[in-house]
């Protein structure tokens, strides 16, 4: 099979797909309760199963959907709900700017779908993959499809059996997402100025979180880290491919 100048055998495709599935598995354990609780809350808010499906399968951005549900319950005007969703999802602008540079092996149609699926763990895993073995569509779509299916199916399970959900805290499932993200962040420790970027982002995020409040800590904390990286950058300094 020929793809963007790379000759890939079926073995490579198979290997890429399996690697994508292997990398996504730990986070599906965290996504199940996160998505399940969203489904249960949506039904509690008076959404029908069809409305839940429309919201979850087209927006596909968990944190912003939680905020959307919350604001719907407060009866605020629709435009301010859309603005809140945009504010929480602003970080994806940065994801797509960075990841766009790694999609040389993707066709235009594949890019259109790839950006639709671009959630936090997929972004970080795709960046990691790009520097280890090169990012090819089979890896990206295997990872992304498993995550999308897990999110959607868990929404429905939560919606149908919400009252039966066991306390996720008893298995540590409520905290898998932060632990997974921590591992992903540390995985970038060979990039230039990793430690100053990390410390500036964490400090700025906490400062914003305590003052202005959520969700601005994500975008502003992240932008502070980018500013640090830009200021510390020297010409000709390339990312360490390690």
């Amino acid at each position: 099979m020929k793809m963007a100048g790379l000759n890939l055998s079926d073995d490579d495709l198979w290997r890429d797909s399996l690697d994508g599935i292997r990398d996504v598995l730990p986070i599906t354990l965290g996504v199940v309760p996160f998505a399940g609780v969203f489904g249960a809350l949506a039904i509690e808010q008076g959404l029908s199963l069809g409305e839940l499906a429309l919201a979850s399968m087209t927006i596909y951005a968990g944190a912003s959907q939680y905020a959307m549900l919350d604001l719907m319950g407060q009866g605020v005007p629709a435009w301010s709900i859309v603005l809140a969703v945009f504010a929480i999802n602003f970080r994806h602008l940065l994801y797509s700017a960075s990841l766009g540079r790694r999609l040389a092996a993707f066709s235009t149609g594949q890019k259109v779908v790839a950006f639709f699926m671009l959630v936090d763990p997929l972004f970080a895993s795709a960046e990691t993959r790009a520097f280890k073995r090169g990012l090819r569509p089979a890896y990206y779509f295997a990872y992304g499809t498993v995550l999308y299916a897990t999110w959607t199916i868990s929404n429905f399970i939560g919606a149908l059996f919400g009252s039966l959900i066991e306390d996720p805290a008893s298995f540590g499932l409520d905290f898998i997402l932060p632990l997974y993200f921590t591992g992903l962040v540390i995985g970038f420790h060979r990039r230039p100025n990793f430690l100053p970027v990390l410390l500036v982002s964490v400090a700025a995020s906490l400062a914003v979180w305590f003052t202005i409040g959520s969700p601005w800590h994500i975008s502003l904390g992240g932008l502070a880290g980018l500013l640090a990286a830009a200021l510390l950058s020297k010409p000709g300094e390339e990312v360490d491919h390690g």
Binding site: S98, F188, S201, A204, A224, L226, A229, V239
Partner: peptide
């Protein structure tokens, strides 16, 4: 350099 720092910076802030 700023774009290369996106995964570290944004995920850490998250």
């Amino acid at each position: 350099a700023a774009l290369d720092a996106v995964p570290t910076a944004v995920m850490a802030a998250l």
